[in-house]
Design a protein around this nucleic acid. Structure first.
Lengths: 185, 185
DNA sequence: ACCTGAACACCGTTCAAGT
DNA sequence: ACCTGAACACCGTTCAAGT
């Protein structure tokens, strides 16, 4: 069976989640579809376009039913965290059309353009650094699990959960600052 | 004459500024130094390390004489804008050690850890999107200059200056929000 | 200490040609 | 409409060997 654009985008998202952005090449996406690399260029003019279609898909359902800016940012963050390197993919794609993304327009209705931009840049940046930390931790865990001395150490999972909770709390405190600022400006 | 690590870093910064991050490959940096690609690995273990040394150099003098957080962020922004793709290079390198960069530590002394993180993520994000817009504009100007009908159009430079001023003002308003929030939390 | 030369396993993109 | 096959001009990194 032959592939549609939607097939290409979802194959790309599968490769992204399983192998990361660095390994999400046109050639790997093609081989995920059992197709030659050149076949992708029938569906998409270049890699950047494919990445931006992936970004749209990642944030598709964010904030559909929310009028609370804090809840909106939480949903955005959760959507980015759901897929490996999601924050980087979406932030990079968003950079090319800041001021005109669906996400930013929706948030602008809630808090105005300056508040929307500030909240979005903060959410992207914080989530990207969260994801970087998570991946550094995964790498550390992998190395630790190769180390015989730590094989039966039960603390790894707890440490990871504690790290995630600390990052979530840090995110909320930044949100506190910006939302308080919006009320008083 | 043979090269030192400092020679490698400054050659890399030259390539970055003249050709952009996408073209700042190990091979191009090597040829800037009239040296084989493999020679770089005598000075640096991998490309990521080189990029992080470049990032350190880009922000070297930021905030040395400042105790005002707003002035600090302005200096950081100015340093990132001084070199092509500076924001992306520094933001990516910073992601790997958020919480322990010199920049963040200095700002933490002025506004506490949550304020520092919020200000830094905002400044990186806003400056990165400024630089993306500037490069899109440069590309547009290049295409326009190839168009005979626009050859003697004197509006390009003014439009670019107006765009830059608008982005500077937008940056300041985000700073207003965050700094106001810091006072009221 | 610093570098060369050659190799390995990759990239994105184009284009004529097939069905 | 969707894909193949081959090619072009690149990547980062390793490693034995040279001076």
């Amino acid at each position: 069976m032959r592939n549609s654009l939607a097939d290409v985008v979802s194959a790309a998202l599968r490769v992204l989640h399983e192998h990361g952005l660095e390994s999400c090449s046109m050639r790997r996406v093609a081989s995920e579809l059992d197709v030659q690399p050149s076949a992708l260029y029938h569906h998409v003019p270049n890699k950047q376009t494919l990445l931006s279609l992936m970004a749209d898909e990642i944030v598709r359902e964010v904030g559909a039913r929310t009028t609370d800016p804090r809840e909106f940012c939480r949903e955005l963050r959760a959507a980015l965290l759901r897929i490996r390197d999601g924050a980087e993919v979406v932030a990079t794609a968003a950079a090319f059309r800041l001021g005109s993304s669906r996400i930013e327009e929706h948030l602008t209705e809630l808090v105005g353009p300056d508040g929307a931009l500030t909240l979005i840049l903060y959410t992207f940046g914080h989530t990207q650094s969260t994801q970087t930390h998570q991946q550094a931790e995964e790498m550390g865990a992998l190395i630790a699990s190769q180390n015989p001395a730590a094989t039966d150490d039960p603390g790894d999972v707890d440490a990871s959960r504690a790290g995630t909770a600390a990052l979530d709390a840090s995110f909320e405190r930044g949100l506190d600052i910006i939302l308080a600022g919006l009320r008083s400006v």
